[in-house]
């Protein structure tokens, strides 16, 4: 700090407090709304102070007691989201770390080609090729399945590059020492590379879990059967009621529940989260 100007520090605090409030505002409103009776939204303006219906709202959405607007309970959607997010995060990490291992530690015909093929996925986000990708999934009979929800999303150039970068910084001599110590490629991978990439894997996991959890358009397209509905995609269906007022307390309770897992992950693992975010952009 160059100097301590009181008024600048006060201004900085004010800016930050305003920022924190603006950032928290929508979530506060959502939480308050979730604690009221449906009747609180019929007229006038949304309430700004907590109501007394919180327990009922959350119990109802979790157990599916609002069947008029939801065919499955939120607990099932949460489970589906969890399966999808974990499959995507773990899947991406596994296939990326394996291909990075092959690309860095072996020389084989078509290595360059393989690298570029993986690189291309960076340029083809799912939103862009959504229609033909949907046709592929549908032809493969993967609609309405956990495999269809996760597998098409687990190719990852970013994660492959990250692991490649990590491996390249590991001294060559470590692999040579391991070979002299009698470790073959798979043993070296398991005993040396995996432990040395531990924090990178954890950081990446945080980012990818959030990515997987927050998927929206893909689950909407791939799942027509409500059994596979994920929570982020499910909210939209709840809100899209045609002929009646939306049940705001339920929608907002669902929103709060949908936000909770990834937000908790970010807050609990802030250091890993920041590391992951910065690394994946390299």
């Amino acid at each position: 700090m160059v100097e301590n100007q009181r008024w600048l520090n006060i201004l900085a605090h004010l800016v930050l407090i305003a920022g924190v409030l603006v950032v928290a505002f929508p979530v506060y409103i959502a939480f308050i709304a979730s604690t009221h009776e449906p009747s609180a939204f019929v007229s006038g303006v949304v309430p700004l102070l907590p109501g007394s219906n919180a327990a009922n709202s959350y119990a109802d959405v979790l157990t599916g007691g609002v069947s008029s607007q939801m065919s499955v309970p939120i607990s099932l959607m949460l489970k589906n989201s969890m399966i999808m997010a974990l499959s995507i995060a773990i899947g991406k990490i596994v296939i990326s770390i394996l291909s990075a291992f092959a690309i860095v530690y072996f020389r084989f015909p078509f290595r360059q080609a393989a690298f570029w093929m993986i690189f291309i996925t960076l340029m083809l986000p799912v939103e862009v090729r959504i229609v033909p990708t949907f046709q592929v999934i549908s032809n493969l009979g993967m609609l309405n399945s956990y495999a269809g929800l996760s597998i098409p999303l687990i190719a990852s150039a970013t994660a492959t590059f990250l692991f490649r970068q990590v491996f390249l910084t590991i001294p060559d001599e470590l692999m040579e020492a391991a070979r002299i110590d009698g470790a073959g490629p798979l043993k070296f991978f398991k005993d040396i590379l995996l432990p040395l990439s531990r924090t990178n894997i954890a950081a990446l996991f945080v980012i990818l879990f959030i990515y997987g959890w927050n998927q929206y358009i893909w689950p909407i397209l791939v799942t027509t059967d409500d059994k596979y509905q994920t929570i982020v995609a499910g909210i939209k269906r709840m809100a899209d009621v045609v002929d009646s007022e939306p049940l705001w307390n339920y929608i907002m309770a669902t929103s709060v529940l949908a936000m909770l897992p990834p937000v908790v992950v970010v807050i609990m693992m802030q250091r890993l989260f920041v590391k992951g975010l910065v690394e994946t952009e390299k």
Partner: peptide, 19 residues
């Protein structure tokens, strides 16, 4: 300040839509 990164864009939309 960083936690909104974890909020799904769809949820962010729904929250502001409500407000």
């Amino acid at each position: 300040l960083v936690w909104p990164y974890a909020v799904a864009p769809a949820i962010a939309g729904v929250l502001w839509w409500f407000i």
